Amino acid sequence: MIPFGKTIRLFLVDGTANGLTTAELSNWTGIGVKVPRIKVKDYGSRSEFQKPGVYILIGKGDNNEDAAYIGEAEIIFERLVHHIANKDFWNEVIFFGSKDKYLNKASVRYLENRLHDLALKAGRFKLDQNIPTRSELSEAEQAELEEFLANIKVLTATLGHKIFELLDETVQIDSNKPQVFFCRSSLGASASGTQSTEGFILFKDSLVMQKEQPSLPISIKAERKTMIQDGVLVLQGEYYRLTKDYILSSSSRAAKLVLARSASGPLEWKTEAGLPLKSFE
């Protein structure tokens, strides 16, 4: 299916990006709102805050990892005030409601469950919460809410957080298949990956050099250490094995992580036929 373009209207309520931002799609009854934690109470009387909806609290976890909490409420403002008093980790919230009376308790509980499922599958943010209960709805109601959900996903990313985006959705596709590149060394490292709209995706089960060379940048050493602590890299013989797809900001950063030394991604990453990534850029 050929994707259709979307028109998104962002409105900075007080004229700055540090206050309340609303996001709307043409021909959609929903509305998205982003607001910093410290300004939630300033806008509590607005109509968007006094309706049912789903929300995403966004912040950092104990290890400075991206963290989120997904919830629903019949009155968004009341629930956010509760979280201000009881949850410390978040500094921003994005929530979604309806400009009419489309959403009710059953529909927001359905959306909460589905958003939680999408966030878990994407694996970008740490979610420290139980799985929300999904409402029992008719097939027709679910179909309508899945369309509402798709718009939430688009607007959440537009507002700066790709919590629901699968890595597969960011790859650079040519003729419906992503171009796979390989990074190998004579010492046994063997990794595969592909370009992404966010940088470079290192594929699961890639083998990474264990011994680090003096030329390896400090920032890569720190990232490797964190990956080992989080179980993203596990020891396998004389190498580390990647336990899940992992995104890095550039092909060079990915090559350095794999080879444990200074490296140029456009030259180190090659197709199976030996063509370097540089020739595709």
Rank of each mutant, 00 (worst) to 15 (best):
Ile70Ala: 09
Val54Met: 10
Leu10Gln: 12
Phe148Asn: 08
Ala106Gln: 11
Thr156Glu: 05
Leu127Glu: 00
Lys256Phe: 03
Arg37Trp: 04
Trp269Glu: 06
Arg79Met: 03
Ser196Ala: 10
Leu259Phe: 04
Lys278Cys: 00
Asn151Asp: 14
Leu118Val: 02
Lys278Ile: 01
Glu48Arg: 07
Gly237Arg: 02
Lys270Leu: 04
Ile163Cys: 03
Ser251Cys: 11
Ile131Pro: 00
Asp14Ala: 12
Arg253Gly: 08
Ser262Pro: 00
Gly160Pro: 12
Ala157Met: 12
Lys256Tyr: 05
Pro36Glu: 04
Ile228Asp: 14
Ala189Asp: 11
Thr271Lys: 13
Ile201Cys: 09
Phe200Ser: 10
Ala23Ser: 14
Ala157Gly: 15
Tyr110His: 08
Phe148Leu: 03
Lys121Cys: 02
His82Tyr: 14
Val108Phe: 03
Phe200Val: 06
Phe148Val: 12
Lys211His: 08
Leu267Gly: 00
Ser196Phe: 02
Lys60Pro: 00
Asp62Asn: 08
Gln129Asp: 00
Leu137Lys: 08
Ser192Lys: 13
Ala273Pro: 08
Leu111Ala: 04
Asn104Glu: 13
Asn64Asp: 15
Ala260Trp: 08
Asn63Ala: 07
Asp128Met: 04
Ile56Gln: 09
Gly231Val: 05
Glu144Leu: 07
Ile201Thr: 04
Lys278Asp: 03
Ala157Lys: 15
Glu212Asp: 11
Met209Asp: 05
Phe95Thr: 12
Leu242Ser: 03
Leu267Gln: 10
Arg134Asp: 07
Lys211Met: 02
Glu48Trp: 13
Ser138His: 03
Gly5Pro: 15
Leu57Ser: 07
Glu24Ala: 11
Pro3Asp: 15
Glu212Ala: 14
Ala191Leu: 05
Gly123Met: 00
Ile76Asn: 12
Gln172Tyr: 10
Ile163Val: 14
Phe148Tyr: 15
Ile220Pro: 04
Ser206Asn: 06
Asp62Thr: 05
Leu20Ser: 03
Leu277Asn: 02
Lys162Val: 04
Glu24Gln: 11
Glu198Arg: 10
Thr194Ile: 01
Ile163Gln: 02
His161Ala: 13
Ser185Lys: 00
Ile131Ala: 06
Tyr246Thr: 06
Ser196Cys: 05
Glu24Lys: 07
Ala263Ser: 03
Glu139Gly: 02
Ala119Glu: 02
Lys153Asn: 09
Lys39Tyr: 14
Ser251Gln: 10
Leu12Asn: 07
Leu233Tyr: 15
Thr158Met: 14
Leu248Lys: 14
Arg261Trp: 01
Ile2Cys: 07
Asn63Gly: 00
Glu169Cys: 10
Val258Thr: 07
Val54Ser: 08
Gly265Phe: 11
Lys221Gln: 15
Ser252Cys: 06
Gly59Met: 03
Leu159Glu: 06
Leu80Pro: 07
Gly193Asp: 04
Leu187Met: 12
Ala150Thr: 06
Asn113Thr: 03
Leu111Asn: 01
Tyr240Arg: 04
Leu242Glu: 02
Val171Tyr: 14
Leu187Gly: 00
Asp230Lys: 13
Glu268Asn: 05
Phe181Leu: 06
Gln236Arg: 14
Gly19His: 12
Ala189Gln: 02
Glu65Cys: 00
Glu147Trp: 09
Gly15Phe: 09
Val208Asn: 11
Leu137Pro: 01
Lys244Gly: 01
Ala255Val: 03
Leu118Ile: 03
Val54Gln: 09
Leu20Glu: 06
His83Phe: 13
Asp168Pro: 01
Tyr239Val: 02
Gly59Trp: 00
His83Leu: 09
Gly274Ile: 06
Glu78Leu: 04
